[in-house]
Simulated assay, not measured.
Amino acid sequence: MGIKLNKPFILGIGFTFVIAVVSILLSNLPVFNKVGALAIAIITAILYRHFLGYPTKYESGVAFSTKKLLRLAIILYGLKLNLSTIINQGGTLLLLDVGVVAFAILFILFLNKFIKGDKDLVLLLGVGTGVCGAAAIAAISPILKSKESDVGISVGLVAIMGTIFSLVYSLLIVLFPMDPTHYGIWAGSSLHEIAHVVLAAGAGGSDALSIGLLTKLGRVFLLIPLSIIFLIIVNSRSSNKVSQKIDFPYFLIGFLIMSAVNTFITIPEGIMSVISTFTNLTLIMAMVGLGLNVSFGDLRTKAFKPMIAMAITSVVLSVITFFVVTILL
């Protein structure tokens, strides 16, 4: 996509920026802080399109936020990973994470054979549920050549579903106290976004939060091999293997490089805080753009059955990981 620094382009980026900032501010208020800025941004953008229409005159800037800023956010997301910590301290947890990712994707696809929802949307939801929510969906969608509307719907559903589950987890740890380590691993292995793990595991104390984040980051780490697997599968299923071109998501290389940087170079805490804030902002701006591509018509016709499949998958995943963690670990 060619970039022209004209007024519509700048205003389009500014449009997504304003909604993103408002979403972040709202997420600091009571009640809204349980929902999270990601879900607020998606919902706000969908409502804006429904009542006021898509801002066509700002389309170039909105598209830039949707595509370019989203990829930048995923690259910077790699700085959340310390590869040596995951490999050295989280070996057993990484095996659990592999099982979680495989189960979430395969089980939701299995369910969809009976529910008969939109296959593309269901697959994106399986990836988001199994790996790391919005970042995973955004990373895999170019490989699958997913529609932007499907990406927006799936990101919104995962954000909302993950918020509900994290609140339930937070309530359960209060009503039924359990070992902090077990609780943290359970939250980290079964909840959707890193933010959801922070919300839920934090309710169990600092020990639960630390092990929960380590477990969750193992699932983020699996985004790289999972992308390679999807590339191989999509390429092998191509009806015309000679002419079919599968675009490799090169921003994933940036994701891996940033992970390596965080592994081998000590970045000052102040700088990391600034980068983390910027990453969060760009990701939310991208979510605004994705939300603007979603219509209520799409939600009515495409989202209901996949949402049911994701809800069932999330419940079953939570139950299975609970017993695995409390009995086997």
Rank of each mutant, 00 (worst) to 15 (best):
Y250A: 10
L5C: 03
V21Y: 14
V158P: 04
L79V: 10
I137V: 12
M1C: 05
F114V: 14
V101W: 01
L121A: 13
I185G: 05
V274M: 13
K113C: 10
L5V: 12
I233T: 03
S170Y: 09
I137A: 06
L199Y: 13
V198W: 04
N88T: 11
I267Y: 04
F32E: 12
G162H: 02
I43W: 12
N82T: 08
S23V: 07
D150L: 13
H50M: 09
S295V: 03
L281H: 04
G12S: 01
T263I: 03
K68V: 03
I233R: 08
V155M: 15
V62F: 01
G205L: 07
A45G: 11
G133H: 10
L213W: 02
S149I: 06
A138V: 13
L83A: 06
T85E: 08
S206M: 09
Y183R: 07
P8I: 03
F296D: 07
G152M: 00
Y250T: 14
A135H: 01
G291P: 00
T301E: 15
D179Q: 05
S236L: 13
N235P: 04
N112M: 10
G156H: 01
W186D: 01
V100D: 05
V158L: 07
G126F: 13
L283E: 04
S273N: 14
L144T: 08
I115K: 02
L52E: 02
V155T: 15
T277E: 12
L199R: 08
I40S: 09
A195Y: 01
L109Y: 08
A45P: 09
T266G: 12
T282I: 14
L256K: 02
L96D: 00
G91W: 11
V155R: 00
L281I: 14
F103W: 00
M272P: 04
T321L: 15
I229F: 05
L79Q: 00
A303R: 06
L226S: 07
T282F: 11
A286G: 15
N112H: 05
K241W: 06
L109K: 13
V220W: 02
S23P: 03
A104P: 02
L29I: 10
F296E: 08
I164G: 05
G289S: 06
I284N: 02
V31P: 02
T163W: 05
A260G: 11
K34G: 12
N28Q: 14
K80L: 10
G204R: 07
V261K: 12
A63C: 03
F304T: 15
I224N: 06
I24T: 13
V197E: 05
I140S: 00
V197C: 03
D179A: 07
V35N: 09
D120T: 14
L123T: 15
L329C: 09
V127G: 00
K4P: 01
S318V: 15
L209F: 05
A309W: 08
G289L: 04
N293F: 01
A201D: 11
C132P: 00
A195F: 00
Q89T: 11
L157W: 00
V274G: 03
L72Q: 09
T44P: 03
L172N: 04
G270K: 14
L191W: 02
L70N: 14
